[in-house]
Design a protein around this nucleic acid. Structure first.
Lengths: 154, 154
DNA sequence: CTATGTGAAACCATTCTAGTTACACGGTCA
DNA sequence: TGACCGTGTAACTAGAATGGTTTCACATAG
């Protein structure tokens, strides 16, 4: 299977938070841009909040960024919503036969590779910030960042 | 979620095929080492067969390797059983709002990162062969490779 | 011809994802 | 204060994927 959409949705959300006037980016407004349900967005902002990336107080509209986008790497976002321990990206078949030389060692033999592969993936994510993604979007639009405030959410 | 156990099971299977006398490594015997059902093993050898890594004729016991383990990278095994196109490791949230500057560009902006991250993971897998894993196992056992034939499957 | 083992289909329990409804509670503002 | 929003959270749902299991047709070896 593939890695859940929570990751791109979280990035999408962070960018909207950064370009929206304070108090504007409600979960409902973000949901209309992402094309999903407001509760899905709140679940994600909740995870981003527990990771210290945003601050959302119950009752007050719209979450606030706790860091500028340039200080948030994609890895932080990925880990906030996907929470994977070291090497846990890959599943292992449990309880292989301990009476077999291969069975009793296969996990120990493959584990370093799982860790290295996962780390390689994470290092790529670490080298890009959410601000880079936002910059790419503004380039794709051929507009300046301030114009982002003219967001239409029908 | 994490990447399915089919990958480590496939590696496990290939190693058993290589260390077992011809006609010995039936799906049932492999299943007893992996600790699963023989049909699960046959599904995997089927995928390995379609990828050209093994040859299994219906009716004759045990699949045969079509290449030495040293010529099979972990990436080949991974792709044989996990079949992911470029960038497909990451899921995207579909149909974001085209009326929003962020929504209509988020996918294009994130796609290169998805591709780069997946490729980084795959490159790690490409640098290791199944023979390397088998070698690690024999090191862990502190034995020589020929002794692998003394496999006990109770 | 019989034993055995593979390939494949069908079915099931479990788990995860994402969507949805519902509701209590915090804040804001009239 | 009290009405109104919006958040946080729980609970439920549909759908998909994984891994296990049974069953059976068929190929092959002896």
């Amino acid at each position: 299977m593939n890695i859940s959409t929570k990751f791109p949705v979280a990035v999408h959300t962070l960018i909207l938070l950064s370009v929206s006037p304070p108090g504007t980016a409600t979960s409902e407004m973000i949901a209309s841009s992402v094309n999903t349900n407001p509760v899905v967005i709140r679940r994600i902002t909740g995870m981003l909040g527990r990771a210290g990336l945003v601050e959302a107080r119950a009752g007050v509209a719209g979450a606030r960024l706790r860091k500028p986008l340039a200080d948030i790497t994609l890895l932080e976002v990925y880990q906030a919503v996907n929470g994977m321990g070291e090497g846990e990206l890959f599943a292992v078949h449990d309880s292989p036969n301990p009476n077999c030389e291969v069975g009793r060692n296969i996990q120990a033999a493959m584990n370093p590779i799982f860790i290295a592969a996962q780390r390689a993936l994470e290092q790529v994510l670490e080298q890009t910030t959410v601000a880079d993604v936002a910059g790419d979007i503004s380039q794709l639009e051929g507009i300046q960042l301030p114009d982002f405030f003219a967001v239409t959410h029908s």
